[in-house]
């Protein structure tokens, strides 16, 4: 034990087992996680971070399985974080993304970690940004994070990726559905996967039109068509183009700064919320009982509680 009563810092760069243990510690949270992250923080900022999100089954993992060997061919090491939901009932999770990445299963230049959301609302585990920081500190050139994106909560991914790829497929619905879900706003690259399916071209041109109508954006997201298992060249090129755009002026720094601000805000709010819920437990029950008995509305009860616990 070190003076602080915590284990010494692991060799993140040199020891994959130590890195894997560190990821678990960060997932578990608490003082130990923070000590690790404080030490790792100085070494972050080098990796390029790519987020893939989109409806279940659109082909995110399949795309990654093909994209990662391309990146490896360019001499880059790659860290992959694949997030799947935990069951809110049992806390269990079936993490199946790794299974699709069998092509990199024996490659020491690739590190894959499956992360269960563990109760974080909206599917993006609370610990995911911190896990990416660890992998960044461990020296990987490119980090890819896969999350299921079906709605608003996936805004989170924009806070931790330099480039967000929204993956859609013909069976995941039309462009209007993607827009309703807020997926178009967060996309830096729109990837229509399963280009072998007859409706793919229609979806792609619909999306092109929606972006054209959508008004001025500093970066107009390209719409690319891919075939997950074999043809991801257009995606690779779109990633390059976005990286080049980010490289001009201080766009990348600015984006990361905003991302950090959003992360900080979310962590702060969730800590305060946890703390308040703990303190207000009994009073919350009492107010709920009064609401149920018809005495006051939910809104008034909430306002009362907020006032009571505001200090």
């Amino acid at each position: 034990m070190s003076e602080a009563g915590l284990p010494p810092l692991p060799d993140l760069e040199g020891d994959r087992g130590a890195l894997a243990r560190a990821v678990s510690r960060v997932e578990a949270g608490g003082d130990e996680a923070r000590t690790l992250l404080d030490a790792a923080w100085k070494k972050t900022g080098r990796a390029r971070r790519i987020g893939l999100t989109g409806p279940p089954g659109a082909g995110k993992s399949t795309l990654l399985a093909t994209l990662v060997p391309l990146l490896r061919g360019e001499g880059k090491t790659v860290g992959v974080v694949a997030v799947d939901p935990s069951s809110p009932y049992t806390g269990g999770a079936l993490l199946g993304d790794r299974h699709r990445m069998a092509r990199s299963a024996a490659d020491d230049g690739v590190f894959v970690r499956s992360v269960a959301s563990r109760g974080a609302a909206g599917g993006l585990a609370r610990a995911v940004p911190a896990v990416l920081d660890l992998l960044d500190a461990a020296g990987f050139d490119v980090l890819c994070v896969e999350t299921v994106g079906v709605g608003q909560t996936e805004m989170d991914i924009a806070a931790l990726a330099d480039t967000v790829v929204v993956v859609l497929s013909p069976e995941s619905g039309d462009g209007v559905q993607a827009m309703k879900a807020g997926l178009l706003e967060i996309a830096d690259v729109l990837c229509v996967n399963k280009a072998d399916r007859p409706d793919a071209a229609t979806l792609a041109s619909e999306l092109e039109q929606m972006f054209d109508r959508g008004g001025e954006r500093a970066w107009r997201p390209p719409v690319v068509c891919t075939e997950g298992r074999r043809e991801v060249g257009p995606l690779r090129e779109a990633l390059e183009a976005h990286a080049a755009w980010l490289g001009q002026d201080d766009r990348l720094q600015e984006r990361r700064r905003r991302g950090l601000e959003q992360r900080l805000q979310r962590l702060f709010v969730s800590r305060v919320a946890d703390h308040l819920l703990e303190r207000a437990g009994e009073r919350l029950k009492a107010e709920a009982a009064e609401v149920a008995a018809g005495g006051i509305s939910v809104e008034t009860a909430a306002a009362r509680l907020a006032k009571e616990f505001e200090a």
């Binding site: 994959r16 087992g17 894997a20 243990r21 990821v23 678990s24 935990s86 069951s87 049992t90 806390g91 269990g92 999770a93 079936l94 993490l95 199946g96 790794r98 299974h99 069998a102 299963a105 024996a106 020491d108 590190f111 894959v112 970690r113 499956s114 269960a116």
Partner: peptide, 29 residues
């Protein structure tokens, strides 16, 4: 079944070599 019992199950599928399985076990802790 293990998922329903509250475990986080990493499913790696068919045709894995011993080396691949151990690499996965290491990375997934």
């Amino acid at each position: 079944g293990l998922r329903d019992a509250g475990m986080e199950v990493i499913y790696t599928g068919l045709r894995q070599t011993a080396e691949q399985i151990v690499k996965a076990a290491l990375e997934e802790d």
